[in-house]
């Protein structure tokens, strides 16, 4: 039982990092209807920004996170301007967005490989691995931090979407971009905000992932997990993205703990495939309408 709770806490911690990645991806999907495969590259760079802020600038955690988040927000917005905006002007089908996103992902990954090399880099141990002991269960300080920061950010995002004017605009645009535009919503600005928000959370996720694990140029591939989580929860649904990500984190932690860490990724993908086959709209998504 103690073991189970231990795994559960680990799972929720990693799940909340996945959640930060997934919401950025899901937000973009809900507005633009395409899978932003460049998101992984942005997270990876966020992790590097944080790493260099801590090692070179000797920044404390909050400052490093701030630097990384500023960097990734700018990056996400610039990517939107350079790679997606021209496509939108031409009303290109979503396929072209996906390929463009893939191109950016290749570009970002390899520019880091070319300039910084393929080495794995470890963040300096900002937080002692020893943590709190409650009964027989140890909770690392880092996990607590991840949980707290993750929860605050996700609730902040939910508040923004549900309670503010720009949130209303985002919801309207995700419901129907054209109609929202006709009703006077500045959809250009909404898209800008959505990419900015995605970038912001990507930076945070990158730093926390780096702190807990390590940083390397191909780490963008872990965003595949974000796609799995998004589909699991229901593509385009924000609460679904969060629930999907946390569940995925827990499932992975259980698989690692009880079965084998080799099978962790396999289980994630088998889960993805099963969900897609059995219930494509995910656990909280709206039923998919035929847009073909």
């Amino acid at each position: 039982m103690e073991k189970f709770i231990q795994f559960l806490i680990n799972g929720i911690a990693i799940g909340s990092i996945y959640a930060l990645m997934t919401v950025g991806y899901s937000l973009v999907y809900s507005i633009m209807n395409f899978s932003n495969f460049a998101h992984g590259g942005v997270i990876m760079l966020g992790s590097y920004f944080g790493f260099f802020a801590i090692t070179i600038l000797k920044a404390p955690f909050w400052l490093a996170a701030l630097i990384a988040m500023t960097g990734t927000t700018l990056l996400a917005v610039v990517i939107e301007r350079l790679a997606y905006d021209p496509l939108r002007r031409r009303q290109a089908p979503s396929l072209y967005y996906i390929i463009s996103a893939m191109g950016i992902s290749i570009f970002l990954e390899n520019i880091v490989l070319a300039t910084l090399g393929a080495d794995f880099r470890n963040y300096p141990p900002l937080f002692q691995t020893s943590g709190f002991y409650i009964g027989g269960i140890s909770i690392g300080k880092l996990d607590v931090l991840i949980l707290v920061v993750g929860t605050i950010s996700l609730f902040g995002l939910m508040w923004l979407i549900e309670k503010t004017k720009i949130g209303l605009a985002i919801r309207a645009t995700s419901f129907n971009l054209r109609a929202a535009n006709l009703m006077g919503v500045n959809t250009e600005f909404v898209i800008f905000v959505v990419f900015g928000l995605g970038g912001l959370l990507a930076g945070l996720a990158g730093v926390m992932y780096g702190l807990r694990y390590t940083v390397w140029p191909q780490m963008g591939l872990i965003t595949n997990k974000a796609f799995v989580a998004a589909v699991f929860g229901g593509l385009g649904s924000l609460p679904g993205a969060i629930v999907g990500a946390i569940s995925l984190g827990i499932i992975e932690a259980m698989a690692t703990g009880y079965i084998s860490s080799n099978l962790r990724d396999l289980i994630a993908f088998v889960l993805l495939v099963t969900i897609l086959v059995v219930r494509p709209s995910g656990i909280m998504g709206k039923a998919t309408e035929d847009k073909a």
Partner: peptide
């Protein structure tokens, strides 16, 4: 459809 097939 669409992205669902790609992700699958």
């Amino acid at each position: 459809k669409g992205d669902y097939f790609i992700i699958a």
